[in-house]
Design a protein around this nucleic acid. Structure first.
Length: 972
DNA sequence: CGTAAATGCCTTTTT
DNA sequence: GGCATTTACG
């Protein structure tokens, strides 16, 4: 049997070897979609004798394209895979337009307008025309129109009725004009113009023997047309998709395209893949229940191939800060308690909105957990990189006003808003490009209403000189090296290094590294794009445009950049121990053993601005089905900003309670064993499990019992006064003044139980601290840490650095009693609960060193014997919804164990359930006033802390330097 | 008067 | 990080 048929199930094999010329493979999550698609490519090459250069394979993301190429490399021999036309729709279209665009009047040195450019153009138009429409909305609307094939010609023909529609048509028209005068194509144009090309010159694709499309449910109408055209010669198409995972409606994707395709090609063969090889059936059941809330959806079965596993968790936390802190602590807990079975690279946090990463990044940084970001801002979008690229873009296409505008005063050269506005006005009036006007202005020839200020004129002169020098150099540079050399030229002329140092004192080094990385990239990309990548096979009778000269090379380099995504950060060694943060959208197609989905509240998911609730539900479905073994969803019951409450996402609030539990799992042998089985890994030894327990720090627990389950606050609200380090006050300074110095002590206090947390940006200074610190020094440090905006400072850090015992004792005051009457929150809010049964406390770290960890550390031993009975009773008593499906004994037992119902909220007395818990389960809260009155954990455990703080601090430092994220890059 | 630096608000998802 | 507004500076 062929190697690429090995390990395929019947349905997959049928799909791979199907003789059908039009084939649809419907592949739900985890059903081996990519495997099937790549195997089919290999099959087509090996058994049908197709040449790779005559096969097109379309994906939606560059990551997916890259992954497919990787996988194919292993499947097909030699360098066949490199000749394959494999890429995103946009990049394939770009290739055709570069090669054949001249046939329909597109110069082959066109630039590509990314969404920032598009937005910039529209913003300028809005300002000029004084229209009120939101620029983003306008851009989306334009894109939407274009994605449905509505060109400007059609818009021009229809007469707009309302003033609003007229305004829009006007903006649309001018936007298109702006693109044309700047010689730019936007993302939609790439597809649209390629359709136009292929309609008029079908010969360009006369060589194509087979077309394959991944994630077909995400295609829009233009892409549907493109499919027909690209395959027009032989009409052999394979598409793979899943309507349930359609999450790009906002980008005009049409789920209907699957049906349309069947109608358009009557002989279409459909193959369903139904077996899920990814997730535990607990995860799968939940996902299935959620997706089935959509009643319009044709019902579809998904068979699980894994054991039941652990119930997914829906965890309530008080606010987003605690949510982030809880996720961090849960990550630490699981990595330790699974005895090495789960490591950090197995964990992903998937977000509805990118900005949600902010708090998480801070919390992770504080805990010294390295992470990597997927999606979000690309390498090429980082400010420092963007600046250089915009210079290159200006040199390459000076009439591209958006690029020129973004660098006209960067670095600052005294050209302010007023000057720019005047130049723009003049350009508009003269119907000339901004660049033309700028050149005239420098020579004093421009017709300006207001004369330029002297400094502005000087600044403009410098700019013009630089751009012209770049253009001149372009004529003498070796074409292949032009981009790289230009980058160096620009960086040198701008004194860019000095600029970065001045502008970004905190992290200029990293930014400078990025610039160097860019110039490195420039060489690689250029060579690559000059060779195989871009070359379309010669087709009889159609003239190809040839690359000549440095201009074209530069222009292609910039086009490649516009269509590229982040390159993997090549920092070996570290990469494997990082957790992943990603948007749900860019997590599609990927999988992790452990997945967290924060912020599952109304307004976040479904998003408040979403038009299609079903699409939002599918988004959650996609997120959930990324998880192999453990799935966590979290909900901050309060919003941090306003004091408003948040409401659990409608997708999780009805009829699925029995699929969820409200606390993280107890990592007993059974749970760990199941995880190992699902992941196909060796179960960890008892020794490594026991060792994991000893790795817990003083303030950590074996159980998810540190934060209250009902989302009440973890710490008493009035901790500020008590926990503020009085000793840090300078003489004569009032507490209020100190508070004003911007450190958020309320926040710090909440986190002060993490002994190894540190200041994110002031870490360098902190680490070099000598053991003895005078209060004044501390105050200064406090300030510097506070002024670094990303610092989620922790007072504990000061203690780590050797604050005197005296200071600690001043701190060590009893916590105030909550002022409100008896309330569940008061029961739970006591921070310093003994979280581990007392008999285990001697085995906690710091103290346990005298013991042999492997023999003395206790883990949650009894799986069922002791607790199952009581839990079963609890289940029977409190659960409103019985378990639906029939399942085997193990499943029942596990479901029961997992299904401890939520405690009744806001009860004035302790419920019987809570009593039940405190008596039986280790995950229960030790209730009552006793804890509220006892000492704060962070302080009682201080002696142990000093033992562990040294190495921890060191470790986090090393990690932190290499951490890069979407947020926290603006600390000047 | 114009520019630059500081502050306070907000943030859907991607090629 | 973006954007609008305020404040300081020359």
């Amino acid at each position: 049997m062929e190697s690429f048929l090995k390990g395929l199930n019947t349905a997959q094999k049928a799909a791979v070897t199907s003789k059908a010329s039009i084939l649809q493979v419907l592949a739900p999550p985890g059903s081996g979609k990519t495997k099937t698609l790549t195997s089919r490519v290999a099959y087509l090459l090996a058994h049908r004798g197709f040449s790779p250069q005559n096969v097109i394979c379309c994906t939606f993301t560059i990551k997916a394209a890259r992954e497919m190429r990787e996988r194919l490399r292993g499947l097909v021999g030699g360098d066949l895979e490199s000749k394959l036309m494999l890429g995103t729709f946009h990049s394939i279209c770009r290739r055709y337009l570069v090669t054949y665009g001249h046939l329909i009047g597109i110069p082959n040195n066109f630039g590509i307008a990314d969404s920032d450019d598009s937005l910039g153009i529209i913003k300028r138009l809005q300002k000029q025309l004084k229209f009120g429409m939101d620029p983003r909305a306008a851009r989306n609307k334009i894109s939407h129109r274009k994605a449905r094939g509505q060109t400007i010609e059609k818009v021009n023909k229809t007469v707009s009725k309302t003033a609003e529609a007229q305004e829009f048509a006007d903006i649309f028209r001018r936007y298109e004009d702006a693109l044309a005068t700047s010689n730019l194509l936007d993302y939609d144009d790439l597809l649209l113009r390629c359709v136009e090309l292929l309609q008029r010159y079908p010969a360009c694709v006369s060589n194509i023997e087979a077309l394959l499309i991944d994630e077909f449910q995400d295609t829009n109408n233009v892409q549907f047309e493109l499919m027909k055209l690209l395959a027009s010669a032989k009409k052999r198409i394979t598409v793979v998709g899943d309507p349930d995972q359609s999450i790009y409606g906002f980008r005009s994707a049409e789920i209907e395209n699957l049906k349309r395709m069947q109608e358009y090609y009557p002989g279409t063969v459909v193959i369903n893949l139904e077996e899920n090889y990814r997730s535990s059936s607990a995860v799968l059941h939940l996902a299935q229940d959620v997706i089935e809330q959509d009643t319009e959806r044709p019902s579809k079965r998904l068979k699980s191939t894994h054991c039941y596993g652990t119930l997914p968790v829906l965890r309530r936390l008080h606010n987003p800060h605690e949510e982030a802190a809880w996720i961090v602590s849960e990550i630490k807990r699981m990595t330790k308690l699974t005895g090495g079975c789960i490591e950090r690279s197995d964990i992903a946090i998937l977000l509805r909105s990118a900005f949600l990463s902010l708090l998480l990044e801070k919390a992770l940084a504080n805990a010294g957990i390295p992470y990597k970001m997927v999606g979000g801002r690309r390498f090429f979008d980082r400010v420092e990189v963007r600046i250089i690229l915009d210079y290159l873009r200006t040199i390459s296409h000076p009439d591209n006003s958006s690029a020129l505008l973004s660098i006209i005063n960067t670095p600052a050269r005294k050209i302010g808003d007023a000057t720019v506005a005047e130049l723009n006005r003049a350009a508009e009036a003269a119907k000339m490009s901004l660049w033309t006007i700028v050149q005239q202005a420098v020579k004093g020839e421009a017709k300006l209403e207001k004369k330029l200020t002297k400094p502005a004129e000087q600044g403009l002169k410098e700019l013009v000189t630089l751009i012209k020098r770049g253009q001149a150099k372009l004529k003498v540079f070796e074409p292949a090296q032009a981009p790289g050399q230009l980058i160096e030229l620009v960086a040198k002329e701008l004194h860019f290094l000095e600029y970065l140092k001045k502008q970004y004192q905190e992290d200029w080094e990293e930014r400078w590294e990025n610039v160097k990385e860019l110039s490195l990239q420039a060489r690689d990309v250029t060579l690559e794009s000059l060779t195989a990548e871009d070359q379309l096979p010669e087709v009889d009778g159609v003239k190809q445009a040839k690359i000549q000269g440095a201009q074209e090379v530069l222009s292609r380099f910039l086009a490649n950049v516009a269509l590229s995504t982040e390159i993997e950060s090549g920092e070996e060694g570290e990469a494997k121990s990082r957790i992943t943060i990603s948007t749900i959208h860019s997590a599609k197609g990927l999988e992790w053993p452990v997945v967290f989905v924060p912020a599952v509240y109304e307004g976040s998911i479904p998003h408040s601005r979403a038009e299609d609730t079903n699409e939002e539900r599918r988004l959650l479905y996609v997120a959930m089905t990324r998880a192999k073994a453990l799935l966590y969803m979290t909900l901050p019951v309060m919003q941090s900003r306003s004091e408003s409450e948040s409401i659990l996402s409608q997708f999780l609030s009805s009829g699925i309670e029995h699929r969820l539990k409200d606390a993280g799992p107890i990592f007993d042998d059974k749970v760990v064993q199941d995880i190992a089985t699902i992941l196909g890994r060796l179960a960890p030894s008892q020794e490594s499990l026991a060792k994991g327990v000893t790795m817990l720090e003083e303030n950590e627990s074996q159980y998810d019992d540190i934060w209250p389950l009902d989302g009440s606050p973890r710490a008493p609200s009035l901790t500020t006064v008590m926990e503020f380090p009085f000793s840090m006050l300078q003489q004569g300074q009032s507490l209020n003044d100190a508070m004003k110095s911007k450190t958020n002590f309320q926040q710090s206090a909440k986190y002060s139980t993490f002994p190894n947390s540190g200041f994110t940006t002031a870490s360098h200074q902190m680490s070099s601290t000598s053991p003895h610190i005078e209060p004044v020094q501390i105050q200064q440090k406090l300030k510097s840490a506070a002024s670094a905006s990303s610092g989620q400072g922790s007072i504990a850090t000061f203690f780590n650095n050797g604050t005197s015992k005296q200071q600690i004792e001043k701190e060590n005051l009893p916590l105030p009693l909550p002022s409100k009457g008896p309330h569940v929150t008061t029961i739970h809010s006591g921070k310093p609960q003994p979280r581990i049964p007392t008999e285990l406390s001697t085995h906690r770290p710091g103290l346990s060193t005298v013991h042999n960890p492997a023999t003395t550390a206790k883990r949650p031993r009894p799986v069922l014997e002791e607790t199952a009975e009581s839990n079963k009773r609890a289940y029977a008593c409190f659960s409103s919804s019985p378990i639906k499906e029939t399942c085997n004994d193990t499943m029942v037992q596990h479901a029961m164990l997992d299904c401890i119902p939520e405690p009744p909220k806001y009860n004035t007395t302790m419920s019987s359930l809570q009593q039940h818990r405190s008596n039986t389960g280790p995950s229960s809260y030790k209730s009552g006033m006793l804890n509220t009155l006892s000492k704060p954990a962070a302080l009682t455990t201080l002696s142990a802390m000093s033992v562990i703080s040294g190495p921890v601090t060191k470790k986090t430092l090393g990690v932190r330097r290499s951490m890069n994220g979407w947020a926290d890059r603006k600390n000047k």
